[in-house]
Design a protein around this nucleic acid. Structure first.
Length: 565
RNA sequence: UCCGGGGUCGUUCAAUGGUAGGACAGCGGUUUUUGGUGCCGCUUAUAGGGGUUCGAGCCCUCUCCCCGGAACCA
């Protein structure tokens, strides 16, 4: 084998070592779970998934896959007031889009409400849980604080019989919201606040999106999570760092229950955060409610729906996630790094097209009147197999407003009176002048073309410093193009004032009426193409000649201008 | 204040007692019918002190700094 033109452009990188993989590996070597690996992805169905979830998904599904295990999708639906089936469907859809297939049907914490209830009675009967009649405020005050002792509830010493009767009364519905809770009997002096008699059940006369009105008591996260893991046979329960102080409680519950199998173990890792954006559900919702963005799929948002609409390839997102790895250090990755993965993927795959975003007329004065030629352009120089296409060319074109200057700044390579440039794939043209309106704005750029340079090649070997894109005025198609900038100007929104919205970029979206080459009318909904010299653009899933800028190309000219200042 | 988790180039991830390396960003060059892509090169880091060791980013110890934790949220 000498030449390998078909070698994969992205080498298959072996799964990077990380502390979780090491842990699972050592568990397997020691036979901890009999060599079994089972994880789960446990979102609460109360909002849409975002880029942060993408990392969790890659970790949860990825670890299972790497070790030949399974990963289920489990909805953590223990709080009926915030949850809705609308989100369930959206979450399933987003996970599939990312390229992961949950093992079996999705499962729900609410599937286990009965078992959870029985286990709660088990704890009560072993004197490990009690009903507290105090209100939330009193319980909070009695919990104490960091370095401050807690106070035991006066109801802590109730008899098993009394607790059981009360708990059953809670379930049967006769007691009002907030009147009683079931608490685990922990240690009110524990230095870890989670162990100071945590609440297991609260009364909520609310309709649940799956169990309806069957229940009026609902388990808390801590009481539901580890138990759900155990019921499903999860071995490695991976979650984010903020739950590390819950781990002793996770273990405590499990140790005091007659589990059907091995006791699962929780391991925490750092969640993904990105610069120039926010991921908190509250903030995202506020952006929508305040009308800053137009919905959960507004391409400026970090939700998976938005990223998809914007044209981010799922594979680029998962590549990014596996590249950044898994660690316990809190960190915030530069959005530029994600964008480099997007560009890298799209550079290989996106078809090249010509589109003029801010059109200005270019007239070729020596072009035969009415003559139209069809030039052959390459669809993707990175991939010969993508072939070529024909693009109509004539004496009246649109070029980018930016590509002409009546007076050229230093290092400006494009059109300016006297200068010669190449029209991509067509001819060399030389600027002979321009027309203006009464206000002095340039209305038309005038050029002559060199008939010998057909296809953009000069037989005499002369060079031009620039090649610019164009569309033929008569054949051009109209399109709406939406250009996006960062939603927040600051790397860490709110770092200066504590309020992220103080750093909002009010000009994060610009809508432009573009002239594009006819081939673009055949773009598939959702397809991403490269507008040559401009960037990558995704046709809206609804079609309609609406393009979203996925990400721009690197722009050395912009850097030159920036440095000149 | 108490408990827990962290601290490696500007950013981020790696180095698992043995040459501190990659990516992004930046800078310079080169190729180019995209000021894109590719290629070559450059700059820059183990928070601080003490200790163990032939040898420490890694182990011990003290100090400093950052993050998380006191919902009937998850």
């Amino acid at each position: 084998m000498t030449d390998t033109p078909d070698a994969p452009a992205t080498p298959v990188t072996p799964a990077a070592a990380n502390f979780i993989r090491d842990l699972v590996k050592s568990d397997n070597e020691q036979g901890t779970f009999g060599g079994r690996v089972q994880t789960r992805f446990p979102p609460e169905p109360n909002g849409y998934l975002h880029i942060g979830h993408a990392k969790a998904i890659c970790v949860d599904f990825g670890i299972a896959k790497d070790f030949g295990g399974i990963c289920k999708l489990r909805f953590d639906d223990t709080n009926p007031v915030t949850e809705d089936t609308e989100y369930v469907d959206a979450i399933v859809d987003d996970i599939r889009w990312l390229g992961f297939e949950p093992h079996g049907e999705p499962v729900y914490a609410s599937d286990y409400f009965e078992q959870l209830y029985q286990w709660a009675e088990h704890l009560i009967m072993h004197g490990l849980a009690y009903i507290d009649d105090q209100n939330a405020e009193t319980i909070r005050e009695q919990r104490g604080g960091y370095g401050k002792p807690g106070i035991e509830s006066p109801f802590r010493t109730r008899t098993v019989e009394e607790n059981l009767a009360l708990f059953r009364a809670m379930r049967s519905g006769g007691l009002p919201d907030g009147s009683h809770v079931l608490r685990a009997k922990g240690d009110m002096q524990h230095e870890n606040m989670q162990l100071r008699d945590p609440v297991m059940y609260r009364i909520r006369h609310e309709h649940h999106h799956r169990t309806g009105d069957q229940w009026c008591i609902y388990p808390t996260y801590d009481w539901a999570h580890g138990q759900s893991d155990a019921i499903e046979g999860v071995t490695h329960s991976l979650c984010s760092l903020e739950f590390d102080s819950h781990r002793p409680l996770y273990d405590w519950y499990l140790e005091h229950l007659p589990l059907p199998g091995d006791q699962p173990r929780q391991t925490e890792f750092a969640r993904l955060e990105l610069t120039h954006t926010v991921t908190s559900k509250r903030k995202l919702r506020q952006l929508i409610e305040d009308g800053v963005v137009e919905g959960w799929d507004d391409p400026r948002l970090p939700t998976l729906k938005a990223l998809r609409r914007r044209g981010y390839p799922a594979s680029a997102i998962t590549d990014f996630c596996s590249f950044i790895g898994v660690a316990k250090t809190n960190s915030r990755h530069a959005i530029e790094l994600l964008e480099s993965f997007i560009r890298n993927e799209l550079n290989r795959t996106a078809q090249r097209r010509m589109a003029v975003l801010r059109p200005i007329k270019l007239v070729i004065t020596n072009w035969p009147a009415g003559h139209v030629e069809h030039m052959t352009l390459q669809n993707n120089p990175e991939n010969e197999a993508d072939g070529t296409r024909q693009v109509a060319f004539s004496g009246e074109l649109f070029i980018e407003d930016d590509d002409f200057k009546a007076e050229a700044p230093p290092k400006y390579y494009r059109l300016t009176p006297g200068a010669e440039v190449r029209l991509r794939g067509a001819y060399f043209v030389q600027c002979t002048g321009f027309n203006t309106d009464d206000a002095g704005n340039v209305t038309e750029v005038l050029c002559t073309y060199d008939p010998a340079t057909t296809g953009g090649q000069a037989p005499d070997g002369r060079k031009v410093k620039a090649t610019i894109h164009w569309v033929s005025a008569h054949e051009a198609v109209d399109a709406e193009v939406r250009l996006y900038e960062r939603l927040f100007t600051a790397e860490i929104p709110g770092e200066a004032t504590g309020e992220p919205f103080d750093d909002l970029n009010r000009n994060s979206k610009e809508v432009v009426a573009a002239k594009v080459e006819p081939a673009l009318a055949h773009t598939a909904p959702g397809e991403v193409v490269q507008f040559e010299r401009l960037g990558y653009f995704a046709l809206d899933p609804e079609g309609g000649m609406l393009f979203h800028r996925t990400v721009g190309l690197k722009d050395e000219w912009a850097n030159v201008q920036k440095r000149a200042k």
